[in-house]
Each structure stands twice: as structure tokens, then as C-alpha cells.
Write a protein that binds this DNA or RNA. Structure first.
Length: 941
RNA sequence: GCCCCCAUGGCGAAAUUGGUAGACGCGCCAGUUUUAGGAACUGGUUCCGCAAGGAUUAGAGGUUCGAGUCCUCUUGGGGGCACCA
């Protein structure tokens, strides 16, 4: 067959006939939404894409032929860093490069013989698409799920640019080789951690690979434990009666030490050195202690906007108005004001532990280098110089270095203070060490060297005591480090309890004493979506000084600002009507200025009126993480050209959630977790009716080079699908990819394997040509019973196998049927010829269409034909090989009809010469009979 | 270090889920096609053995009438996490 010509002919015919155009509803048919992970427009479709898309397309076609109304869309994940890298390397604008690739890849995808509905193609870099990505961001922002904070970014000091993680190779910049450092930059984060528990729980109902679910569970990393308050000894402070109240939004900055002055119009009876309580104005609860370092009495006119805590006010009038309102009295230049300088101090360390049952073995406490206490207790720590030196060093260290030094634990004792174990009253030393992470739990742990490996390593290094408080239940020989649950010893009234019970009781006691509480922690971190990059969707926010001042002074109408705007004073969401915020086409798309996106250079872009007050504003210049684009694209396919809504509600209801999603296992965590998060948020905002986007998920394996290595141009082991298509045709390539092995397995490319499929197709063609010649001699044939049986067994098997993604055995079943057909080439009836082709159609769409219309003379496409029904009666075997075993060893087989009784089977077994030879004069102890399978004679030996 | 997965002929693999191990395909061997050629056809092909027969699913043990399949340990390979208290 001249496949080049055939492929082109049918491709054009199908387009003309519109057989792949999807309707949202077809009477009498259920909808089925079958998706593949859309590709990144890298330039060329490689064999990995084929392996993802071709077998998935076989599945999709099978679903359609089985009576479903199927949606099978495709698109391009077009934004992202690789386009910028390519642009830098080749001197082509990222946009030019991306759209050129989309063009070539679209053609390649069509050549594969896939049934995508091209009218629904989405490209995430199109303004009509990213308009809604921005809209999605605004939904999250206004709902209070976005916040801005300093976050670490990879920074190359030579290139003066922010790097993505993939651009950091061995801690060095992949372009210039300079050591990369971590810098803190203000960035936007999404509160995915609010959804940690639901993201974990809802995994249970999904038809996903267990491995993938396990990876997500792992990533979310739930652990249930207890926070325990260790009071600090050595403070020797008397807390004064006076208190200072703070608005909740100021508390983080007070605690972090940014704002250490409070201004009062009425004096408090405190003097320098007094310890006061700082109280949350809303909850009335104490959140910290502070030492007064200075009290100054002055008049209002001397307070300037450069003073700490008052940098923000613009005009004096505005400033006085704030006070007048708060104190309910008129404030003028001469009004007295007291300024209290203070420093926050801590009187306790909260630690998080999952093993509170081991607390009687706690011999010291460790805080992370980032821990607030190190700053707040600076005065109490007698070796504070040594401590700050350690902290400075640890904070500068890269994650990587911490890893290399894994074995060696480092740390410094905080001399001058001790922590008090709430159960024993014991005073234990406090250390700062970088093996405790600032970002997890409370950033502090109680160390139990006898029952924790890391604590043990540290204790040994520093010669700290090791105290056993748990022993194994079964009195097994004691390990040096017994980390399992067991029974408590030396634990006062808890002695003798087992670990699980002790945890419950001890946590209850702590809660009663207000010295601790049960607590669940997650490893999952919030999602950092800011990218200081050009090729991405702009973040639709404008910063407005005036609105910020109004929010901070509290002078605004209720409902004037959204939850998100109040939580991020000054950041105002762009009005929906004015979306999208277009990504300007700029000449210089390289990030240059310190930690800023290239968009920061474009005055035309930055200058924008505040969407709220129409005053002067400045746009956010960072762009969004591309995972934002791919977190909702499955919602767009049902209605890709809708300009009024991200998708029509009815169309969403018709198709979603997606019934099948196929793609690489490398997306097991990030993409799939973010997409699930989006779906849940949109559900909560009443924009979607379902909580999970992908009901079923399958992964394809990775195809390696023939040498077993990962394919790469530099290794010269890349398999080019275009070459294969030229030699064997698209159908053979599709089918071979199905036949190679289990779909989720992958493995090295077998260069010789293709030929088997090519031969198979040739044999099919020859068989059909021969049939056509015979047909002209006009002799009707009836299929033999054995051919009928083979056909119906194949119908059953191929259908079941495709449904279960076992494409390899489905192909082999077709091969077996072809072998039978060839054996009986003179008695093949038309029905068999037709049904065989229909089963072949999902695998070899061009080839089967050519024979269907060309040889069998059909008028309509094979791809809208119905999948054949198998007949149970016809496919059933009436005989089987009865296996005769002696003591479980097969000795003979006897061909008998199905339903044979045990008695008859026993007679047959005993009649076998082989059986008698194997065990002459046997004495049967027992007979095992498995109906329609085997008989096993258990004899005395 | 921790967690998860995998291991079957020369190669890719299959095995009704605890019931004849090696289907199907590649490769190889022999033959056919009155020359050659192979991306044609026919037959053979787990290993040892002429055969009868025996051995065999990385290795060792166990459960069972019966184990590729279940359990324990060991070895080798792959993936994930990475000091998460």
C-alpha cells in the first residue's frame, strides 16, 4: 500500500466529511471526555509524544466506536521558560518561535491519524485564552487565596537575573557557571495549603495509578502530632500590668521586629526595662512579650513620616485624622504623644512532635536558624555573637550544601537560657541547628536522642545525654535508637502505657494545662506563582498607594475592597471588563534589572490607573507560572471560543469532569495537584459543580534510546518518528507503539520490532486483495465454527484490553485472529472481514479506511462504524484440556467437553498411561478438582 | 537514609489473578519460491538430552494438593522524597 498517498487522501476526506467534529450532545449517546496532556511547543513531535498520543487515540476511537459521544481535544502549553531560552540561544523572539513550532507540530499531530477536534484547539499564549487565566487568578485573589511575601528565588549575581530551578545545575547558573545564591524577593503565592486535607482525602475516590496517588500523598505529607510549649527559664522577668494592643494585620510585622515602636496619645504607666504584654486587638489574646527600651514624650508636630511605624502617611491632615478617629478626640500639632520603643521577647518555645510519648526522653530543644526567638532573646543569650555567626552562615547556605553535609550535624547552644519540659519541669539546653527546618511545623523540635536518629547523631556530636523512655513491647534486644512505638518507661504516671495511648493522654493533659495542643502539619507549601520573566501571562494587578493608605487607615466603605485587596493593601485587581492585560511585544525580553521582570522596563505597561480609585497606579510586572495556564485548560475545551465566560455552564456540565486523562508520570505531583486545587477552589466559588477534574488517569512509560539511555541529541540516540513514518507509514508506527509492551512501562527502543507490524499489515492487505478477487467469482462462503469462535473471542479480548489500556495484548489478539483467517483463507465470510477491519481501525486508521471503503466497498467511514458485538455462545469453547496432576505435577492432559464431572475426570485421569507410568500402584489420599481446569491426585509417596 | 515499584527464553513480552510457564512479535535455524535478494512463504526455536525424561520465572527459605503469582530475607535495576521532628 502506498501509505503516503493513502494517508493524505483520507486525511483530506475526513476533514471534508467532518467526522471528528464534536457535538455537545448526541441523542442516545453518553458523553465521554478523553484527554491527553497537551504538549509544550518544543519544535518537533518526538517519539515520546507519539507514545503518549497514539495509544491514547486508540482508546478514544474505541470509546467512540463503542457508542459514546466523544470529545478528544488538543492544544498547546505555549507559555514558559524554554521559549525564552530558545529565544536567547537563537535570537528569535519567544512569540515567533512558539507560534512557528505550533504550526509545525499541528501538522505533525494531524499526520499521526489522531481524531482531535481541531476547532477546539487552545493555545495558552493566545490573549483569548490567557484572558481567562488572568480571570482565574483574580477569582483566587479576591477570595483571599493569594498573598504577597518575600520568597526565595535563585539569583545569578553575574547575569543579575532570577533563574528557574531547571536553570540551576549543581548550584550553578547554566549559562555562565556562576554560583547561584538565594535571594528574597517579594512574590505572589497561592494558598494551596488551605486545601491540603481535601487534596489528600479526595484522592481516595479517583481511578488513578496507585503510585501517583502515593506520590501526591507523600508530597502533601500529612503528619498528626502535638505542639508542646516549653517555657523559657532564665528570663527572670516581671510582667507589668500594662498591655499594648495591636491590630491583627500589624502583628506579623511586630513579631518579625519590623515595627518596634508604638505611639500613644495617652500615657501608659511603664518605664524602660519593663516587660509588657502585647495583645491582639481582635482576639484579646497575648501574642508576645516585649521589653520597653525607651519611652519618649513629644508633640504631634515632631512625628515625621521617616519615623519607624509612620513611614506611610502623606499629609499631616491625613495623619492626624487617623489618630482623631482612633482616640475619639481632636488631634493637632501640639497634642502630646508618647512613643514606646520596645523589643519583642519570647517566654516560650513551641515545638511540634509526632511522638509526644517520648517526651520524658527529651534532653534538649533545637530551634531552626530562622527562628524568631534568636532575635527576640538576643539580650538573654550570653553567647549571642557566636550564635549570630552560626545563623548567618546557615542562612547563607544553599539547600544543596545542607545536603552534602548531611552526615555532620552542626549547631550552637543558646547559652543563658534553658527550656522547661512541661511534664518533668526539667531544664534542658536549647540549641540552634540547621537540621531543624524553619519552614516546617513551629521551626523548633524537642530532641529525643534515644528515639530519633537525627537527634541521636546531634547528641553524640555534642556529648548530650541520651535517655530512654520507650522500650519494645516484645522485649526485643534494644537498638541504639529505638524509633518504633513501644511501651513507656521512666515516664512517671505514663509509665507502662503504650505509645499510641500515651500520645492521646499526654496531648489531653497538655491541652488541659494550656501548654500544648493536638496539631496536624503538612509538608505541602504554598504555591509560588510569580516569575520574573517575560514569556508568561501578566498578573492582573495594579499597585495603588492611595488605596493602600485608605485600607491601612481603615477609611473605606464596607464592600469597597475585596477580601484579597484588604489582605494585600495597595494591590488592586484589574477590572474583569478590561481583561486581558495584554503581554506587550517588547524587544528586550531578557530579565536584566535586579529581580525584576523585563516588563518593568516598559513604561507603557507599568503605568496604569488604579482600577478602584482611578488614581496613579503601577502594574505588577511579574508573569505567572505556566502551571497556572495548565491548571484549568481542561475547562476550556468544551467551549474554547467563549468570550463571555471561561466556558458555558451547560457545556461544562456536558463534558466534565474528564473521563480519561493520559500523560506522563513526570506530572504526577505538580500539574495534577495544581489542577485539582483549581477545581476545588472554583467549586467553592460555585463556578463548578464537581470537585475533581480527572476521574481516571493513565500514564505512558518513557521510551529510551536503543542504548537504554534517555534520548538526547548529544548522545545521538534519538528516534525520529518522522523517519519511521516515512519508512513504515503512520499506521504501523501507531500500532507498533501499542504492541511494544505494557503502556505504562516504556523502556529501550527496539529497532527491529517495527518490521513485525509492517508484515502484519501487509498480510492483512494481501488477504483482503485475495478476497476481492474471489468475490468477483461470486461464491458466497459461510464461516466455519472455529473461525466464528476465533472472531468472537477476539472481539471480546480486543475490546476488554483496549478498555484496560492493554494495547499490546489487544494487538496480539488481532494477530492471532489473522493467523486463523489465513489458515482458513478460503472460508472467510464478509462479516468476519468487516469486523476484523473495524477492530483494526483504532490502531490503523488510514489503512483500515482504505480497505473498508476501497476493498469492501463501503460508502461511509470505518471510524463511525460500530464496534462489533461479541456473541457469548459463539465465543465459548465447548472443550478444554483437562490437566491431570499427581501431587501438583502435571503428568498428562486430556481433551474433554466442558462441564465434566469430578467422577468422570478421575476415571479419565486413572486411565492415562502417563499417569500410571508416573505412579504405579498409587494410593490416593485426596483429590483436588477444579472444574473445567484440572484434577490433582494427591497420593502417598 | 526513608518510601514505592520491578526482575520470566538471545530480545520486547504473555499467563484466565493461586491451576498446562513462555501466547503474540523480533531474532535465529532449516526448507520453499526452477538465478540472486529479502521487509516473501512453510516449518522449527526456554535449557540439558538421540530419546524417555529432567530442569526452569534473579537467589535462598516458607505457606499450599498446587507458587511466575502470596509471605520473609538477599542481590540487582528503576522511580519518588530528601534532616518534614
Amino acid at each position: 500500500m502506498q501509505f503516503k498517498k493513502v494517508e493524505k487522501k483520507w486525511r483530506e476526506t475526513w476533514k471534508k466529511e467532518g467526522i471528528y467534529r464534536t457535538k455537545d450532545a448526541v441523542k442516545g449517546k453518553k458523553n465521554f471526555y478523553s484527554m491527553v496532556m497537551f504538549p509544550y511547543p518544543s519544535g518537533d513531535l518526538h517519539i515520546g509524544h507519539w507514545y503518549n498520543f497514539a495509544p491514547a487515540d486508540v482508546f478514544t476511537r474505541f470509546k467512540r466506536m463503542s457508542g459514546f459521544n466523544v470529545l478528544s481535544p488538543i492544544g498547546f502549553d505555549a507559555f514558559g521558560l524554554p521559549a525564552e531560552n530558545a529565544a536567547i540561544k537563537r535570537g528569535i523572539h519567544p512569540k515567533t518561535w512558539t507560534y512557528k513550532n505550533i504550526k509545525t507540530m499541528t501538522a505533525q499531530l494531524e499526520n499521526m491519524g489522531t481524531m482531535y477536534d481541531w476547532d477546539r484547539r487552545v493555545i495558552t499564549a493566545d490573549p483569548e485564552y490567557y484572558k481567562w487565566t488572568q480571570w482565574m487568578f483574580l477569582q483566587l485573589f479576591h477570595a483571599g487565596l493569594a498573598y504577597r511575601t518575600k520568597a526565595k528565588a535563585n539569583w545569578c549575581p553575574k547575569d543579575r537575573t532570577v533563574l528557574a530551578n531547571e536553570q540551576v545545575i549543581d548550584g550553578k547558573c547554566d549559562r555562565c557557571g556562576t554560583e547561584v545564591i538565594q535571594r528574597d524577593i517579594d512574590q505572589w503565592l497561592l494558598k494551596i495549603t488551605d486545601y491540603a486535607e481535601r487534596l489528600l482525602q479526595d484522592l481516595n475516590g479517583l481511578d488513578w495509578p496507585e503510585k501517583t496517588k502515593a506520590m501526591q500523598r507523600n508530597w502533601i505529607g500529612k503528619s498528626e502530632g502535638t505542639t508542646v510549649k516549653f517555657m523559657i527559664d532564665g528570663l527572670d522577668v516581671a510582667i507589668s500590668k500594662e498591655t499594648f494592643k495591636f491590630m491583627p494585620h500589624l502583628i506579623p510585622s511586630v513579631l518579625s521586629g519590623e515595627k518596634r515602636i508604638t505611639y500613644r496619645l495617652e500615657p501608659k504607666a511603664v518605664k524602660t526595662g519593663d516587660i509588657v504584654q502585647l495583645i491582639n486587638h481582635a482576639s484579646k489574646e497575648r501574642f508576645a512579650l516585649a521589653r520597653i527600651t525607651k519611652v519618649v514624650k513629644d508633640t504631634m508636630k515632631h512625628v515625621s513620616e521617616t519615623q519607624e511605624g509612620h513611614e506611610k502617611f502623606k499629609t499631616r491632615k491625613e495623619f492626624y485624622a487617623t489618630y482623631s478617629k482612633y482616640y475619639d478626640k481632636k488631634v493637632v500639632d501640639d497634642t502630646d504623644i508618647w512613643m514606646y520603643h520596645m523589643e519583642v521577647i519570647d517566654d516560650s518555645i513551641d515545638v511540634f512532635t509526632t511522638r509526644v510519648d517520648t517526651i520524658f526522653g527529651c534532653t534538649y530543644v533545637v530551634v531552626a536558624p530562622e527562628h524568631r526567638l534568636i532575635g527576640t532573646l538576643q539580650k538573654q543569650i550570653t553567647n549571642s555573637r557566636e550564635v549570630s555567626a552560626y545563623v548567618a552562615k546557615a542562612r547563607k547556605k544553599l539547600e544543596r550544601e545542607r545536603m552534602i553535609e548531611e552526615k555532620k550535624k552542626t549547631g550552637v547552644e543558646l547559652q543563658g537560657i534553658k527550656a522547661i519540659n512541661p511534664f518533668t519541669g526539667e531544664r534542658v539546653p536549647v540549641f540552634v541547628a540547621d537540621y531543624v527546618l524553619g519552614g516546617y511545623g513551629t521551626g523548633a523540635v524537642m530532641a529525643v536522642p534515644a528515639h530519633d536518629e537525627r537527634d541521636l547523631a546531634f547528641a553524640k556530636q555534642f556529648g548530650l545525654p541520651i535517655k530512654t523512655s520507650i522500650v519494645a513491647k516484645d522485649a526485643a534486644p534494644a537498638d541504639e535508637c529505638m524509633t518504633e512505638d513501644g511501651v513507656l518507661v521512666d515516664s512517671e504516671s505514663f509509665t507502662g502505657m503504650d505509645s499510641a495511648a500515651a500520645r492521646t493522654h499526654m496531648t489531653a493533659w497538655l491541652e488541659h494545662e494550656r501548654r500544648g495542643t493536638g496539631k496536624v502539619n503538612y509538608k505541602l507549601r504554598d504555591w509560588l506563582i510569580s516569575r520574573q520573566r517575560y514569556w508568561g501571562s501578566p498578573i492582573p494587578l495594579v499597585f495603588c498607594e492611595r488605596c493602600k493608605a485608605r485600607i491601612e487607615s481603615g477609611e473605606y466603605k464596607k464592600g469597597e475592597f475585596t477580601k484579597g485587596e484588604l489582605a494585600n493593601p495597595g494591590w488592586i485587581g484589574v477590572a474583569e471588563k478590561t481583561l486581558p492585560v495584554l503581554l506587550p511585544t517588547v524587544k528586550n525580553y531578557l530579565p536584566t534589572e535586579e529581580g525584576k521582570s523585563p516588563l518593568a522596563h516598559s513604561k507603557a505597561f507599568v503605568n496604569a490607573p488604579c482600577p478602584r480609585c482611578k488614581g496613579k497606579g503601577a502594574r505588577e510586572t511579574d508573569t505567572m507560572d505556566t502551571f497556572m495556564c495548565s491548571s484549568w485548560y481542561y475547562l476550556r475545551y468544551p467551549d474554547p471560543h467563549n468570550a463571555k465566560r471561561f466556558a458555558d455552564e451547560k457545556k461544562l456540565a456536558a463534558w466534565l469532569p474528564a473521563d480519561m486523562y493520559v500523560g506522563g508520570a513526570e506530572h504526577s505531583v505538580m500539574h495534577l495537584l495544581y489542577a485539582r486545587f483549581f477545581t476545588k477552589v472554583l467549586h467553592d466559588l460555585k463556578l463548578l459543580k464537581f470537585k475533581e477534574p480527572f476521574t481516571a488517569l493513565r500514564h505512558q512509560g518513557t521510551i529510551l534510546g536503543p542504548d537504554g539511555q534517555k534520548m538526547s541529541k548529544s548522545k545521538g540516540n534519538v528516534i525520529d518518528p518522522d523517519d519511521l513514518v516515512d519508512t513504515f507509514g503512520a499506521d504501523a508506527v501507531r500500532m507498533y507503539l501499542c504492541f511494544m509492551g505494557p503502556y505504562d512501562q516504556g523502556g529501550p527502543w527496539q529497532p527491529g520490532g517495527m518490521i513485525g507490524i509492517a508484515r502484519f499489515l501487509q498480510r492483512v492487505e494481501r488477504l483482503y486483495d485475495a478476497h476481492m478477487q474471489r468475490a468477483s467469482s461470486a461464491k458466497r462462503v459461510t464461516a466455519s465454527a472455529s473461525l466464528k469462535k476465533a472472531l468472537h473471542q477476539t472481539i471480546k479480548k480486543v475490546g476488554e484490553d483496549i478498555g484496560d489500556f492493554r494495547f499490546n495484548t489487544a494487538v496480539s489478539a488481532l494477530m492471532i485472529l489473522l493467523n486463523v483467517m489465513e489458515d482458513q483463507r478460503d472460508s472467510i465470510d464478509t462479516e468476519t472481514l468487516e469486523q476484523f477491519l473495524v477492530m483494526l481501525a483504532p490502531f490503523a486508521p488510514y489503512f483500515s479506511e482504505e480497505l473498508y471503503r476501497g476493498v469492501l466497498g463501503k460508502k461511509t467511514s470505518i471510524h463511525i462504524a460500530a464496534w462489533p458485538k461479541y456473541n457469548v455462545r459463539l465465543s465459548a469453547e465447548d472443550e478444554f484440556e483437562l490437566v491431570v496432576q499427581i501431587n501438583g505435577k502435571t503428568r498428562d492432559t486430556v481433551r474433554v467437553s466442558k462441564g465434566v464431572t469430578q467422577e468422570r475426570a478421575r476415571e479419565l485421569a486413572l486411565a492415562s498411561k502417563k499417569v500410571r507410568d508416573a505412579a504405579p500402584g498409587m494410593r490416593i489420599k485426596k483429590v483436588i478438582f477444579v472444574p473445567d481446569r484440572l484434577i490433582n491426585l494427591v497420593i502417598e509417596s
